[in-house]
Simulated assay, not measured.
Amino acid sequence: MIQRFIELGEGYGDIFEICELARTNADRLEQAFIMYANHNDKQVASLAISLKPVGDSKFMPIYLCREGIPYNAEKPSQRLAIFEEALAQLNVVPNRFEIKHSSIFSENNLYYQYLIGILRLNHYIPPMH
């Protein structure tokens, strides 16, 4: 199974896009994620969804809005609320966990390998076969 991140942006349009991807692919929606990271003493959130492979394909896309959403537990961002509302309409509970910020990795590929490892280790996505 090949899992690959497909990075969207971090603005409102990108949040609406990831929500629409979840809705239009509701039958393929595998998991949803809200991942938190600390950066310069502030918490930021990344939002992601993973989709089941199509047909006999061994490709699992993971759409990601990376680290552009300020996170405050007491006053959630409107972008986060939009994502959570879309998931609630689909009866999907997002997996929430803390991760390292991508800025500590020398390149994005290493960061994505780190995330794949976390997702596999926690059985959120299947192992590579």
Score class of each variant (00 low, 15 high):
E17P: 09
F59W: 14
K100P: 02
A32P: 04
R4W: 11
M60F: 04
R79L: 09
K58V: 08
Y63H: 14
D27H: 15
L29Q: 01
R23E: 14
G68R: 01
N91R: 05
Q43T: 11
Y114V: 00
Y36W: 14
A32K: 03
P70I: 00
M1C: 08
C65I: 00
R28V: 00
K58R: 14
E67P: 00
T24H: 15
L87T: 03
F16G: 01
L87Y: 05
I99Y: 06
E85V: 01
K52E: 09
N109E: 14
K42S: 15
A32E: 08
N109Y: 13
G11D: 09
A37P: 10
S50T: 07
L47D: 05
A26K: 15
R66E: 10
L51I: 00
V44Q: 12
F16L: 08
H101L: 02
I15T: 02
L64G: 11
G117L: 03
Y71I: 00
N72I: 02
P126F: 00
K52T: 09
P53M: 01
R120N: 02
Q113N: 08
R120V: 00
N91P: 03
Q31C: 08
E84S: 12
E84R: 14
G11W: 01
Y12A: 03
Y36N: 13
I6V: 10
L90T: 10
E30D: 14
P61L: 09
E10R: 02
P76C: 09
S57D: 12
R120C: 00
Y124G: 06
S57R: 10
Y36V: 11
A88Y: 09
L110Y: 05
